[in-house]
């Protein structure tokens, strides 16, 4: 369960202001954040995921207050409870697909790799259709395959929230539908909450709820 109350945020020195009076996202819910460019979709996603700290207000995920957590604890929370999928996939070119999927385990001591980790990886790779590409490098994959790898990486830690920023932005319509469908299925399979920032209105019907962020943002005079 994600709960935001009276959240305000602005970038230092900038005119942009985001004010969210109240937002509740139920566990397992699939939510799309839409709005024109600069309306604050990515900022809101970053606040929800603990990447940005709001000026005021409360941000809770499953009862854990992110707004007041220290940087270290927010980082630890993020790596264990949030999975990220990016528009540009953001795979490390010099690591194999397998190593990319296991990247969260390389970056922190908060996660311990066990036999179960390898089993999870194998299962994810199988269900996302990249099981035969684990030893390859990202440059040898198609765009759709890269995004599948990114989805696997986001789900490796069993996150409570899967945050995706324009995950289909670089894909052709057919691949975009496939990837979103996969994202939905995997989120359901893992019992996670899905929050997706998107411009693609053709895909909105797949979501449980669509939130127009523009109504919460404004630009003030400098």
């Amino acid at each position: 369960m994600i709960t935001l109350r009276d959240v305000a945020f602005h970038y230092p020195g900038g005119p942009f202001r985001l004010q969210v009076p109240a937002l509740d996202v139920a566990s397992g819910e699939k939510v799309a954040l839409i709005g024109p460019s600069g309306s604050g979709k990515t900022s809101l996603l970053s606040i929800v995921c603990g990447l940005l700290r709001p000026d005021r207000g409360s941000v809770q995920i499953d009862g854990e207050e992110l707004a007041t957590l220290s940087e270290a604890r927010r980082r630890a929370f993020r790596i264990r409870r949030i999975g990220f999928v990016f528009q540009e996939f953001e795979l490390l070119e010099y690591l194999t697909v397998r190593e990319n999927i296991l990247l969260p385990y390389r970056l922190t001591d908060a996660l311990t790799r066990t036999a179960q980790t390898d089993a999870t990886l194998a299962e994810l790779a199988r269900t996302t259709g990249i099981h035969d590409k684990l030893k390859r490098y990202p440059r040898t994959l198609s765009q759709g395959e890269k995004q599948r790898v990114a989805i696997c990486r986001a789900l490796m830690t069993g996150p409570a929230v899967l945050a995706a920023d324009e995950p289909t932005g670089n894909l052709d319509p057919a691949t975009a539908r496939d990837v979103l469908s996969l994202l939905m299925r995997q989120t359901e399979a893992h019992g996670a909450t899905l929050i997706v920032v998107t411009h693609n209105h053709a895909l909105l019907e797949s979501f449980d709820r669509v939130i127009e962020v523009a109504s919460w943002s404004q630009e003030t005079a400098a």
Partner: peptide, 14 residues
Amino acid sequence: RRELETMWRIGCRP
């Protein structure tokens, strides 16, 4: 920059 930012977003240590 983006590679390093991705590491930071995922949660790499400071």
